[in-house]
Write a protein that binds this DNA or RNA. Sequence first.
DNA 1: GCCGCGATTTGCGGTAACGCAAACCGCCGG
DNA 2: CCGGCGGTTTGCGTTACCGCAAATCGCGGC
Lengths: 232, 232
Amino acid sequence: MDKSARIAVVERAKLFAGLPDDTVAAAADGAQVRVIDKGEAVFRQGDDATHHFIVAWGRLRLDQTTPDGKNIVLRFMGPGDLVGSVAVWRNVPYPATPLAVDETRLLVWSEARMMELMQAHPPLAMKAMNMMGGRIEELQERLQQVATQQVERRIAATILKIANQSGRKVETGVEIPFALSRQDLAEMTGTTLHTVSRTLSGWIDEGILEGRRSSHLVICRPHRLVEIAEQA
Amino acid sequence: MDKSARIAVVERAKLFAGLPDDTVAAAADGAQVRVIDKGEAVFRQGDDATHHFIVAWGRLRLDQTTPDGKNIVLRFMGPGDLVGSVAVWRNVPYPATPLAVDETRLLVWSEARMMELMQAHPPLAMKAMNMMGGRIEELQERLQQVATQQVERRIAATILKIANQSGRKVETGVEIPFALSRQDLAEMTGTTLHTVSRTLSGWIDEGILEGRRSSHLVICRPHRLVEIAEQA
DNA sequence: GCCGCGATTTGCGGTAACGCAAACCGCCGG
DNA sequence: CCGGCGGTTTGCGTTACCGCAAATCGCGGC
């Protein structure tokens, strides 16, 4: 990946968007590139947090394993998303494992390099705080959902969120363009594989979705799904 | 509250702890004081975020109301805790309402004043990011709990966390020194008042807790509670 | 001291969702 | 073309938890 390609990635990244050209250029200069094969991890939960990453292409699933062996999916991440930084800044081990769900290309900065960047370009700190604030809000919303809403609503809301941030238009509706298993959905919504499967089956029967026995879902009637997500 | 009292509060606050004296003094100088009566709100969910607050004395309960009228308790906050800042920095309305559960005294900074402070004292930004990172981790942990663990474990873990951050030693064990209703616990753990009451009743019968029909709980056998929180 | 209000306790169904188990299907490699 | 593997679907019994409703109690006001 040459310099202009790196610049293009950096300026579309949420952490750098809207910052002056020289900031973007400096950031692009300091970055390394790393490729992660499908199924591989960028780093592992518990590792020392030494590097910041930004997704250039591809997609990651951020997994957290609990002490008793259960697994939850914190989020999916795509181009422009920042990975690992919270742990680096706090000086704690990475709290989760980002797995490549497709082949993924990342830009990488060492802790020191990013520190220099932030000192040389103060607005970066503001941007970073903005992003962390967004994560906090998102987590609060999910907590509220899991704590108060029933499973059907949570699954609907989750599918809609993923579709909003990664969906592509196809003939029959909006497609989720990567492998999203029932297990993944279960681990995002705090339920079981079985319940997800049953629920989706119902929706497929009603023509809201397509994608029986296929992990590429297509949402045919998004409006109906919104109704389910919001129904009292 | 005179200047030296304000300084004492500021240097114990998580946002300023360990920073140079001149930073602390500058912060204390820029602060106003505000008193909130028991039961009153510091601000309301949805208000424009214009000020940063730090709790000096007292205790707040951070509530979030969902669109469909349900309520969840995000956290309790005591002396040293930062309130409202995430929303101010992100330039979004306050996402929750902090209610005084006891009479509470706060230090207040306007958005502009805090901005000046952060520009004059760059390490502040780092501290702020640290704190936000802590919130993210805490939320991820709670999400994981609500999503994967059963009610009994969640209640035990919640009581233990509150006891750790606010418990006081008394003759029979560790007391939670403020009014914590069954309803509050229900809204923190994502369950109902009834289930919390039943669960606590059981524990009181077993001698793990004291506090029947009283909102000041005393934990008599913390170790047993830890076992419950961690049991497979 | 008595009364009434709000929080808590407790009983009793009801049910959403789990968990096991088995059948099913599409894909990939041989 | 076939067989096996991994993800999915589906049936069925179980259960943890909810939701209503009534009884109980402590506390503050009169």
